[in-house]
Design a protein around this nucleic acid. Structure first.
Length: 689
DNA sequence: AGCACGCCGACT
DNA sequence: GTCGGCGTGCTC
């Protein structure tokens, strides 16, 4: 028998191997095969009697049995086609490889006082075990550190075996107090509507302001599904949001759900994936990669904050949007898809108005009161006088302060003295300053502008800008020397657990954070949220800049005043009249949507067209992109660019955008059956430029 | 993606 | 004379 095996290499076609008589393999099995001078894991995507390869075949050497069901294999096949990536590579990155679970962090499985008593009795006979318990009592949770104690490795193993310790499943030890929640009528109506859609593949948009109880609606719907023996998936855009979701789900469902996300240790990922495969997992919470979990009898997939760009995998192939994958699963496996947001993606809301999704509105806030939102000029200060005054006021009342910065300081935009952001005359996308030729470039159409005058005041001298989180942290410490200041962004992600716990306990007065902090975190002590530079996001070279700005402000407003204290939000902006900022200040999504939709239509951006982003990389990226553009234009594609991008790790890059109708991806797949290795093809990109 | 093979600059 | 830079090409 011949096994056709997808291998973790860019090439699309599978490789044929001989299956020796003592092994039996089926489609979906993981196999160990010789490949060149080494061995690799592959996944069987077909079996046949005759090979398609003419050369000499090598044997399959081992198998670990099923790694995914046929439905998931089909799903990943579809994703690999849509994102112009070989099936083998897509499978290797989406189905976790076999790995033994090994605790990375441990915690006490007993109340601390009991543990102290046990360690006292152990002190004479098993001093190593006592030392481990004492160390944990002192706050050490890392398994690696505990292993370094004298005899620590073995002692930890014994304690895990005895059940005194247990592996910590989440990179965060968030605890929430019990509270009983009664649904209001809008929430009840939403749960009823969703319940009717479980198993039918219906799609819903749960639309409501922060604190309107969207999470409770998903959780009650999950419970309804469980009662009918259906499994569920709950997705959040960021790992940092999982602990709260996990804790709340455990409380509503009666038992804790499984977790699945990229940073989970390999053994844990494998365990959850195989639990799902065997039908043992009934509910899982996770980030975008969890949308592929092979849960059996899937009844519901919910995406919280569905407009968040983190749902799209764009940095690494295969490129996919968790929402699109959920909808593909709905079509083949029938789960209801529930999208929830206070500020949905414009595309999603548009689809709801077109009847593709059922709109379920939750108009009322059930947690806290709407914070007061005000706008303040930033001028040349990082933290302007009005925000400074507000921080003083809240610190004085023992409130906590969150200072947000969208950390896209990567781009250097240009502002005129009259405070308007300079935009491309054709695309209305903000221009990006390139130091190499000291010119402003449009990353959408490729135009380079050297002699530009501000369209609103005619001035030709501009100010370049970009502020980072470190600078904000530094300013906060300088201005408020007696406050405890912490910073949470991609650089400090390893300390996330510690920092978030300290915030929850009120030990940090000012938290400076990038995007990740802005989403559904729920800290009752935070009474003031300051958005340091709302204009910076507006200047990103992307047609979604307005949408992101609205989402940022709306999300931040949702962070303030979730507890007893009334909340306040101060947005620093020098363009308070710009529609995205104005409507966000008023929490008026409908007004934002109306204006944004008009802009999208007049300039033919999604949802009125579909974009495919192509990035050429390498020495003559621009020339190659240019030749490709010529070729595609000849085949009657609409092509924007090529535009020169900033080099990445010293390697030049150039971008093309192909614009078309819904069928543009299929047409491109026909035109470029196997894109060259220097070209990345990303349909429906979330980030341009 | 690896890893080999292959053809040109600075070193024991 | 070699060690080694990373450019192309192949792996059932």
């Amino acid at each position: 028998m011949i096994a056709r095996v997808a291998l973790p290499i860019p090439r699309a076609a599978p490789f044929d191997y001989e299956v020796p008589p003592h092994l039996s393999v089926a489609v979906g099995d993981r196999v160990w095969v010789p490949f060149g001078t080494r061995h690799v894991w592959g996944i069987v995507v077909g079996v046949a009697d005759e090979p398609t390869f003419a050369g000499r075949l090598l044997p399959v050497e081992a198998t670990t049995g099923p790694s995914l069901p046929a439905s998931t294999l089909d799903l990943i096949k579809q994703i690999s086609d849509l994102s112009f990536v070989g099936l083998g590579l897509a499978l290797a990155r989406l189905a976790p490889p076999p790995s033994r679970a090994r605790a990375r962090e441990v915690e006490l499985a007993l109340p601390p006082d009991t543990a102290v008593r046990i360690s006292a009795t152990l002190a004479s006979r098993a001093p190593a075990q006592a030392r481990v318990i004492i160390a944990i009592g002192e706050g050490v949770t890392g398994a690696a550190e505990l292993r370094q104690l004298p005899g620590g490795g073995r002692a930890m193993g014994t304690l895990l075996h005895k059940g005194i310790l247990r592996p910590r499943r989440l990179p965060f030890s968030y605890q929430e107090e019990e509270k009983t929640i009664t649904l209001n009528s809008a929430q009840r109506a939403a749960v009823e509507a969703i319940q009717a859609g479980i198993g039918s593949g219906k799609k819903y948009l749960v639309f409501g302001p922060p604190g309107s109880g969207k999470t409770e609606v998903y959780l009650r719907s999950v419970a309804e599904g469980l009662a009918r023996a259906k499994t569920s998936l709950l997705l959040a855009p960021e790992v940092s949001l999982l602990p709260q979701l996990w804790a709340r789900a455990g409380r509503v469902l009666g038992s804790p759900p499984e977790t699945y996300f990229g940073e989970l240790p390999p053994g844990e990922r494998w365990r959850t994936w195989h639990g799902a495969l065997r039908g043992e997992v009934r509910c899982a919470v996770g980030t975008r990669s969890a949308v592929f979990l092979p849960l059996r009898d899937l009844g519901l997939v919910a995406l919280d904050e569905e407009g968040e760009p983190a749902y799209k995998q764009e940095d690494m192939a295969p490129y996919y949007h968790a929402r699109a994958v959920a909808e593909l699963r709905a079509a083949r496996e029938g789960p209801a898809v529930v999208l929830g947001a206070a500020a949905p993606a414009v595309e999603t809301f548009y689809r709801a108005t077109q009847g593709e999704l059922e709109l379920l509105s939750l108009p009322d806030r059930v947690v806290g009161a709407r914070p007061t939102v005000s706008v303040a000029p930033r001028g040349d200060a990082v933290i302007g006088p009005i925000l400074q005054e507000a921080i003083h006021r809240h610190l004085g009342k023992r409130g906590q302060v969150l200072l947000f910065l969208n950390r896209l300081g990567f781009y250097t935009g240009a502002v005129c003295r009259c405070r308007s952001i300079l935009r491309c005359p054709d695309c209305e996308i903000p221009l990006v300053f390139h130091l190499a030729d000291r010119a402003l470039h449009c990353h959408t159409c490729g135009k380079a502008v050297r002699d530009l005058r501000c369209p609103s005041c005619g001035e030709d001298r501009f100010h370049l800008f970009g502020v980072g989180t470190e600078r904000v942290e530094h300013e906060a410490r300088r201005l408020f020397p007696s406050a405890t200041v912490a910073r949470l962004d991609a650089d400090t992600v390893r300390d996330r657990d510690r920092i978030l716990c300290a915030v929850a306990k009120g030990k940090i007065q000012i938290l400076v954070g990038a995007q990740m902090v802005g989403k559904g975190l729920d800290f009752p002590g935070i009474s003031l949220v300051g958005i340091v530079n709302a204009d910076q996001l507006l200047s990103t070279p992307d047609f979604r800049a307005g949408e992101r700005t609205y989402q940022l402000i709306a999300g931040a407003a949702g962070r303030a005043g979730r507890g007893e204290r009334p909340g306040e939000v101060v947005v620093q902006s020098d363009q308070p009249g710009y529609y995205a900022i104005r409507s966000a200040l008023e929490a008026d999504y409908a007004a934002f949507y109306a204006e944004e939709l008009g802009y999208r239509e007049s300039l033919r951006y999604p949802p009125f067209a579909r974009l495919v982003r192509m990035i050429a990389t390498g020495r003559d990226a621009e020339a190659k992109a240019g030749a490709l553009a010529e070729d595609l234009l000849g085949r009657r594609f609409e092509v924007l660019g090529p535009a020169r991008l900033f080099p990445r790790r010293g390697i030049p890059r150039a971008q093309l955008l192909v614009r078309g109708r819904g069928d543009v991806v299929d047409r491109l797949a026909e035109a470029l059956p196997q894109p060259p290795s220097w070209l990345k093809v990303d349909p429906d990109p979330m980030w341009l430029g």
